[in-house]
Amino acid sequence: MSDRHPDHYVAPVDETQPGAVDQVKLSARKSNMWLDAWRDLRKRPLFYVALVLALLVTVVALFPSWFTPLDPNAPGACLLADSNGAPVDGHPLGFTRQGCDVYSRIIYGASTSLTVGLLVVAITGAIGIPMGAIAGFYGGWVDSFLSRVGDIFFSIPYFLAAVVVMSVMSEYRNPLVISFAIGGFAWASLARIVRAEVLRNKNLEYVMASEAIGRSRGSTLLKHVLPNSMGPVIVTLTLSLGAAITAEATLSLLGIGLNGYMSWGNEIAQAQQTLRTNPSALFWPSLALTLTVLAFTFLGELIRDALDPKARARR
């Protein structure tokens, strides 16, 4: 066998018969980026936990009256006689210092927290996506200009900016204003992500092919480049939903958040004063806040893992 000049070896053909060249082998089911990601998500228990929590919060926010017969906004909903009261029948989580029902206030506060969260996401996306996409796709001075604007906003901590804005706008402390105060300064990091994704995609050959067909630049951006850049955007936006809810709560805790709205942040701020005597009034809204933020954070991270084939392979 060990011969310097071996014979001409031919493998037995029946074992190594070459198949047809480049035959189309289709799997039984369709496959593309989103379908694959969905199939991966479906197999992860944590996804269901996060999804159920997120859906529950959404339903509670939309239809609070389904979950409690009490209306905390009704006149006479809070009785000072119940101040710091322990849970009793019909009031499962006890009372606040003002004698209000903790449970029903959490239920009604969900809608404010979620509204702020969604508004911030909408504002961040509405500014960040076009800024990043246009900068990345058109390049040149457009990119230089938009990127510098982004850099300016990036260098301002969005929370600090929101504190300043909310202090100045003390007369208009409603969800819309607070959302603009947070989202108006938080979009720069999203714009960077979008720009990087667009830069990556815009030199691929399908973009060139689309222009050779006769599509305009703008239409190519909308139809080909942006859809292929959405993966990281969705992840970032889902994660920022949680961050926005936290930001609103923090602003309210500092006393410069919403005025006259029932929100988890406001509940926590008020319950602070009775931390020693009635800690449960602080505990329950904090738990609601934590679970909600956790649900959206998990969702964002799970989607990120599912969209990344390498992360899928590691598991």
């Binding site: 000049h5 071996p6 014979d7 001409h8 070896y9 031919v10 493998a11 053909v13 074992e15 190594t16 018969q17 070459p18």
Partner: peptide
């Protein structure tokens, strides 16, 4: 091909007289 040796030998012989269909 596909992880196996299908044919091997002195290069000239292999090129002028390939035996395996692949």
């Amino acid at each position: 091909n596909q992880g196996r040796i299908v044919e091997a030998g002195p290069s000239k012989d292999l090129l002028t007289n390939p035996q395996h269909p692949y």
